[in-house]
Amino acid sequence: MTTPSDDQEVDNSPTAYELLGGDAPVRALVDRFYDLMDLEPAYVDLRHVHSPSLADARDKLYWFLSGWLGGPSLYIERFGHPRLRARHLPFSIGIKERDQWLACMMQAMNELEVEPNLAARLHQAFFQTADWMRNKGV
């Protein structure tokens, strides 16, 4: 067993996964996100990037977010490293799709009453990831 040296600090602060409330709230966030994508006309371009059934996408995002937020590494246990950009290259993702993804996730967080400071922190992290996924200019 290793112990931190004097110049290393142990971060005992709760993870985003813990701050959200764990497994059930993460699943609820993903489910609301995909429900909104399916229902709201504002997300039509984002919806068209997905297959007719969202079941597989729901599971994969839930598994991914679980680990990304600091909880169990469900996605990695099933598929290995996420390789997000490589896995999304077959899909046309531009600024419009990025912005719809972010707006849809923000709406889901707002509707589920995610604590505002946590929602803002997650939005910033989601933006950085979503912007990196873009593979077309517009």
Rank of each mutant, 00 (worst) to 15 (best):
T2K: 10
P4A: 13
D7E: 10
D7Q: 12
D7K: 09
Q8F: 04
V10R: 05
N12S: 12
N12Q: 09
S13K: 14
S13F: 07
S13H: 14
P14W: 04
Y17T: 04
L19K: 15
G22K: 09
A24G: 01
P25Y: 10
R27S: 01
R27V: 06
A28F: 02
L29I: 14
R32L: 15
D35H: 10
D35L: 12
D38I: 00
Y43H: 14
Y43A: 09
Y43V: 07
V44N: 07
V44D: 15
D45T: 07
R47I: 10
V49I: 11
H50M: 06
S51F: 04
A55E: 10
R58F: 05
D59E: 14
K60H: 03
S66P: 05
S66H: 08
W68V: 04
W68F: 04
W68E: 06
G71C: 08
L74I: 12
E77Y: 06
R78C: 03
R78D: 00
F79K: 15
F79G: 08
G80R: 05
R83G: 06
L84G: 07
R85I: 00
A86D: 00
A86R: 09
H88T: 11
H88V: 11
I93A: 12
W101Q: 10
L102N: 05
M105S: 03
Q107E: 12
M109T: 13
E113W: 00
V114Y: 05
E115W: 02
P116V: 13
N117T: 13
L118T: 08
A120F: 00
L122T: 15
Q124W: 11
A125M: 12
F126L: 13
F127Y: 14
F127N: 13
Q128Y: 08
Q128I: 04
Q128N: 11
T129D: 00
M133H: 02
M133T: 02
K136D: 02
V138K: 11
